[in-house]
Every structure is written in structure tokens, then in C-alpha cells.
Design a protein around this nucleic acid. Sequence first.
DNA 1: ACGGGGAAGTTGACGTGTCACGCTCTACTT
DNA 2: AAGTAGAGCGTGACACGTCAACTTCCCCGT
Lengths: 154, 154
Amino acid sequence: MSAENRWLTTTEERAWRGLLRMTDLLVNRAGRSMQEGFGLSATDYTVLAELTRAPGGRLRIQELSRVLGWEKSRVSHHLARMVKRGLVTREECADDRRGAFVVVTPEGREAITAAAPRHVDDVRHYFLDHLTPGQVTLLAEIADLIIEKNTQDR
Amino acid sequence: MSAENRWLTTTEERAWRGLLRMTDLLVNRAGRSMQEGFGLSATDYTVLAELTRAPGGRLRIQELSRVLGWEKSRVSHHLARMVKRGLVTREECADDRRGAFVVVTPEGREAITAAAPRHVDDVRHYFLDHLTPGQVTLLAEIADLIIEKNTQDR
DNA sequence: ACGGGGAAGTTGACGTGTCACGCTCTACTT
DNA sequence: AAGTAGAGCGTGACACGTCAACTTCCCCGT
């Protein structure tokens, strides 16, 4: 099932290594921008974005874990830090007493509201502005496809 | 210069978030495979690959830092761990006595030689096999472009 | 009704990445 | 020759991610 023994072509190599390098660069750029401008890490931003898009600004932790694609313990650790900085709070769950909710605080909402426009600008400036609409579409399709193939058999 | 105030379209959102998610998944998959099969992290593999492709299996640390796109201190920390595990060694630099070389040890060479075929299979299995040659080419072009745009003005 | 498998979430230890700082050495200026 | 700006690299403290183990609770079979 392994040992196909076929080395990567130059183009394949460029696509693979390039993908890693590109994403690394973009995450660093955007992350640095959020950090310096608003005291939010890239992951803080993602968490807050996910929470504010949910009704009531609240989500079951498992649900958050699922949409982010993060392990439970990672979510737990990260929420602990965000709680400590007043961005979110935990709440008990009446339905399932093992469970818990996370809720954005007003501070958290304020933080991401302030940061969002800048974040959009960053994504455009570092990334989208350099691509044609066709390239963007193609990339979206590729990403969706690869994600699907690598999560369905989870 | 900021405040363009134009929110991302659905496709743009899919491309951006999808890129992050896809890369995350792929790095995790490939990394786990290397770790479990050969005791190498994804970054170990990259470092060893870079070293073995260099003449003599040796590189100035600054050079390694450059090709990897890593900060100096990150390289330093990571090499310290790899030295401890016998994968590489440091050597003094005669030309510039501030400088240093890293050299792959026979153990390091052995490790990456053993891991390489599996790594290629992984890249194909998780990634390339799902794409058409045209998509791979397009991705390579996009990556090169974005990398260039985001490194020239470093 | 009770017993066990398993789900939800937390915790602690450890490996990894970043930041600020420090050390040594080079190269340039005067 | 002496002074200094800056290059090359290392270190320690802290933020983050992963893994394995643990606690609490749900649910299902008997």
C-alpha cells in the first residue's frame, strides 16, 4: 500500500513546499498584525469570529472544537487563557451536565469588532490582491476538495 | 491606507479559510505519519531534507535560517534538540568565527533516507492524488507568486 | 435498577515557537 | 589603533499544542 517509489516532479514539489511556505508566511503576517494592533493572536481572532457568528455569541465547547477542527484539550487550554484575559467566559450546560458553553464577553466583542476591518484588509493586501478572481475560485475549490477528502474518514 | 471596508465575498472567504484549514490538516497528517513511523517531526524532516540536499550535508546556520524562512532563535532551539538526539552536529566556522555550521550525522542521514519514501507517498495520498495536473500547476504558480510578493519587501 | 462503555471537558507534563536580551566577533570609520 | 555599529548565534522566560490520564456524567443493555 506504500512504496510507490515515484519521486515528486518539480511542479509537484513546488506545489507542496510552496503551499506550506505560503501559508506559513500568510499566517505570520496576519498574526503579527492582529497581535501588534489589537493584542489578539491569530487563534484568538478565529475563536472570537466563530463565537460572534453564533446566535447569542455562545457555543458548546464540542461544537467550537468541531468547527475549528481543534482537539478538545487545545480548545480547553486556549479558552482558559482567553477567560483569564476577559475575552470569553464559561457557562454550565443545563441539558447535559458534563457539557459547557463558551460565551463572548462585551470586551471580546469589542476586540474583534475593532480588529475585523484590519483583518480583512490584511487578507486582501497579503493574499487576495495578488490573485485573479479565477485563481481565488480555483483555490477555494481545491481547499474544499482536500478538506473533504481528509476529514470524511475522520 | 487601511479601512477599505469591503467585506470578503463567499468565494474569497472559502479560499482564505480553506487554505488555512487545508494546510493545517495536511501538516498534521504528514507530521503524524513521520512521527509515528520514524520518530521525526515534520520540522525535523524539513531540516534534514535541506541539509542532505546541500553539498557535504552542511550549511551555515544563517543559510539554513534563510531557506527555511525561520527566525534565528527558532533554528537555534531546534538544532539544539536535534543535536541532543544525534541527528546533526554543530561545527565551528573558520572564515567567520562568529558563525557556525550544522552537519547531518550518519544517523540523521539514515533517518531521512528511511522516511523519505513514506513522506512522498503521504504527500501523494493526502494531497496530490486528489488533484488534476492542472490544479497542481496552478497551485504551484499561486504559491510562488504569493511567496515572492510577501518576501521581497521583507 | 445497576453496571459498564463511552462522551464532555479538564489537567499536567512535555516538546515547540517567539520575544527580548546578551555575547562574541567583523568591518567600517576616524 | 581604537571605537562602534551591526552581524551571527545562543539563552531564558513565556505562550502555545499534543498526549495521556483523569473526573464527571449520560445512556444503554440486561
